[in-house]
Design a binder for these strands. Structure first.
Length: 594
RNA sequence: GGUCGCGUAGCUCAGCUGGAUAGAGCAACAGCCUUCUAAGCUGUCGGUCGCAGGUUCGAAUCCUGCCGCGAUCACCA
């Protein structure tokens, strides 16, 4: 990388001219701002202590040294303490020539080290997935792709929360009010049916609690002691005691849910290498807790409940086993972490989970560490922000939850309506058209969500998310499709991309694109280090935007100088490849035409 | 109340490992299709980077305090 070379030589220059002791990493190199001449800029202000000269003089000497040392540099200029360096056009042209056929551009070979295990999605089986799960799924699968591209071995895992009090609620509701009803009898996705059961339970519970409150019981107590709640708890106990009837119903209803989830995952393009079920792991969690109890690391209270006292770490006490011996969320997570460690001995254990659970993961790491698991250090909570709606948070009680399947349907219809309005689908057959609408609508949705820094809360405005202009997925897809059309025409005209033959001046816009392309590998590495698909999204947008400007102002196929035309064709081809790679890292497909 | 996070243009977001005049998109307005896809391009308008201090040659960026918003502190997950 030329940035690195320049840093090296700048350090060398200071050491030679001023007898300093600079290391290359002390030299910060940045891109030159658009309104100045040059490609890279070094600010010499920090080094004036060393040179004891005016900034202009220091910068001039360093610039001179660089130019003499590095033939790929053409020129330099100095403005105040800023040394702007101009790289020769030939350097960029050679870069393009070297990589135009490079299928691995921006990707590293897998390292062969221990894998990174990344968990995402982690749905509960009591209701369908919603917008929040979409952000989770998209982040998780994109981060997995980015890590792979950066040379990590990655194992993508899902942890399905298939047991617990919430599942019991849906089961109980089915027994009481949905008996005999199945997904096929209702022609309903299984996860939706089970979700309906869950909603029904909560409605009935609420009315029971209200009855109790009318007879003078306090609100919290009313909900706890309502007959339905007691029944649900009893059901959970029966489940843990392997009651055959309860287990049978549980298996049946979960199977419905998995079938429904599978459809949603498939449409979203989300996939896993391994699926864990909490029903398989919670016992391991329990045994870890018992082990900790024996070692005196955990405490048992009079009622039999087990706790971790984390007051030393500035946290509270945390429940690990209920008084009735059933396990809670944390218990299960201890077990799954252990299991995952045993299965893969991972380098890093990533958990893509919302930031509302920051505390949970702090506790998880501390408890594991206390229990002597050194690898607790390798647990990374990829904490992402909440998705908010224009009217505030999603609340199931207020019916403002955005259902994942419905959202994808709506996006599809918008894409179709827009395409038909613009006459884009006129000569496509039904299959081609629906494939295109699907590609575009999912591109819009995924890009809309992934372009935001994962750590931040984001606002999901349904109207803006189906916008296909400006900083959007479809804009980037369109740029790709445009280039494909160009390449097709070139082929028809017997024109070929060829960089070898070209040597000459390039336009600023061409150079700008080449510099962005050049930065792709470093961008992938940065995105991997930051665990941030947003970095790839913003990069891809910038590339597409610059390309569209180039396309608009400079002739490609119409260029009469065949060498120039061949070069521009090559530049276009490579831009399309990098756009495709970038979009792939986001899980977004690109259409051949649109 | 304790802890953690966030606050950049009317709106949605970049920029944040300190550096030149803080960038995009949307919205609004004005232009560009006889020529490679107008889901595009060009221009105009729009900012006390929440407020106040501090560190520094230099702060949207680092530190402290305050204000505002959010999350969390469950025998929920």
């Amino acid at each position: 990388m030329i940035e690195k070379t320049i840093s090296n030589i700048v350090a060398e220059a200071f050491n030679a001219i001023y007898s300093a002791n600079l290391k290359p990493k002390d030299v910060l190199i940045q891109k030159t701002r658009k309104d100045f001449q040059g490609d890279y800029t070094i600010n010499v202000f920090p080094f004036l202590k060393i040179s004891r000269e005016k900034p202009e003089i220091t910068a001039g000497k360093i610039g001179e040294y660089l130019i003499n040392k590095l033939p790929e540099l053409k020129d330099y200029n100095v403005i105040k303490g800023f040394l702007n360096i101009v790289v020769s056009d030939q350097y960029w042209i050679t870069f393009l020539n070297d990589h135009i056929a490079d299928q691995m551009f921006g990707r590293r070979q897998a390292s062969g080290e221990n894998p990174t295990v990344i968990e995402y999605s982690s749905p509960n089986t009591n209701k369908p997935m919603h917008l929040g799960h979409i952000r989770n799924n998209l982040l998780g699968s994109s981060i997995a792709e980015i890590l792979k591209a950066a040379g990590h071995d990655v194992v993508r895992v899902n942890l399905i929360n298939d047991r617990g009090i919430h599942i019991s609620k849906s089961m109980l509701a089915w027994q009481k009010w949905f008996i005999g009803i199945t997904p096929s009898s209702e022609n309903l996705k299984g996860d939706k049916l089970v979700g309906d059961c869950y909603v029904k339970f909560n409605e009935e519970l609420k009315s029971q609690a209200e009855d109790l409150m009318r007879s003078g019981v306090e609100k919290g107590e009313a909900e706890k002691n309502a007959p339905l709640m007691l029944e649900a708890q009893e059901m959970l106990s029966k489940w843990e005691n392997n009651d055959p009837g309860v287990r049978e119903l549980w298996t049946k209803m979960n199977a419905w849910v998995y079938e429904g989830f599978e459809k949603t995952y498939k449409r979203l393009g989300v996939d896993f290498d391994k699926v864990y079920y909490e029903s398989d792991t919670y016992l391991l969690g329990k045994s870890i807790v018992e082990e900790g109890l024996k070692q005196g690391i955990l405490i048992e209270k009079e009622d039999g409940s087990v706790w971790a006292d984390l007051s030393e770490e500035g946290l509270d006490e945390k429940l690990l086993l209920r008084a009735d011996g059933t396990s809670v969320y944390m218990t299960q997570d201890l077990g799954t972490a252990q299991l995952r460690h045993d299965d893969y001995h991972p380098d890093k254990l990533l958990y893509v989970v919302g930031n509302e659970q920051n505390y949970h993961f702090d506790v998880l790491k501390i408890v594991l560490k206390r229990l002597g698991r050194k690898w607790a250090e390798d647990i990374v909570h990829v904490s992402y922000g909440m998705v908010e709606l224009p009217h505030g948070k999603m609340k199931s009680r207020e019916g403002t939850v955005v259902d994942a399947d419905e959202l994808m349907d709506e996006m599809y219809h918008s894409a179709e309506a827009m395409a038909r309005e613009l006459g884009k689908a006129a000569d496509l057959n039904d299959n081609e058209a629906s494939e295109l609408f699907e590609t575009i609508s999912l591109g819009a949705l995924k890009y809309f969500i992934l372009r935001v820094d994962p750590k931040k809360n984001m606002l999901f405005n349904p109207e803006e998310s189906i916008d296909f202009n400006g900083n959007t997925g479809p804009f980037i897809q369109y740029t790709y499709a445009r280039i494909q059309s160009l390449l097709k025409k070139a082929e028809d005209n017997k024109m070929q991309a060829n960089i070898d033959a070209f040597s000459g001046e390039i336009f600023p816009k061409e150079k700008e694109i080449l510099k962005i392309l050049y930065a792709f590998p470093a961008t992938v590495r940065e995105a991997a280090a930051e665990l941030s698909p947003a970095i790839i999204a913003n990069y891809s947008y910038e590339l597409a935007r610059e390309y569209n400007q180039f396309y608009q102002e400079i002739n490609i196929l119409r260029e009469t100088d065949t060498e120039k035309a061949a070069f521009r064709l090559g530049l276009s081809l490579f831009t399309a490849k990098v756009i495709e790679s970038g979009m792939k890292l986001l899980g977004i497909a690109v259409p051949q035409r649109m």
